[in-house]
Amino acid sequence: MLKRSVEDLLNFGVVIIDKPKGPTSHQVSAWVRDILHINKTGHAGTLDPKVTGVLPVGLGRATKLINLLHLVPKEYVGVMRFHKDFDENKVREIMKEFEGEIYQVPPLRSAVARRLRKRKVYSIEILDLLDRDVLFRAKVESGTYIRTLCNDIGEAMCIGAHMEDLRRTATGHFREEDAHTLQDLLDAYIFWKENGEEKYIRDIIRPAEDIVSFLPKIIVKDSAVNALAHGAPLYKPGVTEMDNVEKGNYVALYTSDGELISVSIVVLEDNIIAKPFRVVMEPKKF
């Protein structure tokens, strides 16, 4: 992987923010933009103002990639409060029934249309119980509303429940331990700008390639890079190495030194391996 300058990372990087309680995700993304004095940021996976935790924010050209994180699961730790006393064995049994495919209607205050939709709950487990509160961990498909999940579990228990507190602990491969506060980011930026100290800001800003590290990879020949950067399809003779890929799925195209060219869609037709979906490399000569 090429070592980019801090300036290049500001134009093509990602920061994992530990979102505080209070502001909207859009506000946090805007604060990242203002702290770093850049023109464009974008976040992946909106968190309600009261929800804390992992919020990936793409910088500059990385905003083209950030929404691909809707493909990865999200993990949460939360507190669900039941409205009446409950039997512990029954609540464990009921919660287990919500693993797998479920149907949800988004809550009234949501950014999407309130239509019935299917989502997957990969796992939901009880971590602790105290009075009418249940501390739980859930791993879910992107777009699953935990608030709605708590309400539905309460209905299934016939006693009602609501989400009392929630923290996102992971967005795919980005974990809670990867997250930094806005104050951390500001301090690191000041150290770099005023003292020339890069260590702290490099610890926080990750290369944009990290966003799509979960995708299968294709390494392409240097002779094919410029055409791909202009939006051309990838042809079989341009491939150096290729992971196992499936037709219709996303794949990340890289140069031989690990620089991301594009995220493409696998076609495997005739001599064409993939067609571009998001080209992120700026065209240049190799």
Rank of each mutant, 00 (worst) to 15 (best):
H70Y: 09
R33D: 09
V91R: 00
K120A: 00
S213C: 12
F12I: 10
M157A: 08
R114N: 07
G231T: 02
T144R: 06
G231N: 04
A208F: 08
I17L: 12
E246N: 14
I201Y: 04
E93Q: 13
M163W: 06
H173Q: 13
Y103N: 07
E177Q: 09
M163D: 04
D48P: 11
V212D: 05
P207Q: 09
Q27S: 11
V263E: 13
V239P: 05
E97W: 00
R132S: 03
F286Q: 07
D187I: 15
R202D: 06
L55T: 12
W192C: 10
E93L: 06
T169C: 04
G53F: 02
K21C: 10
A224E: 14
I102L: 00
I211F: 05
E177G: 00
L69E: 00
E75N: 01
V267T: 14
E198N: 01
H70Q: 14
T41I: 14
V280Q: 08
S110P: 10
V121N: 04
S142M: 02
R4D: 15
T144S: 13
W31C: 05
C158S: 15
V91Y: 02
G22D: 11
I204Y: 03
N11L: 14
P216S: 04
K275W: 03
N244G: 12
T63C: 05
L260D: 06
L182I: 13
L55Y: 09
M281Y: 11
K84R: 15
E194R: 14
I17Y: 11
K275T: 10
K217N: 00
S29K: 01
V79T: 12
G196W: 08
V251N: 00
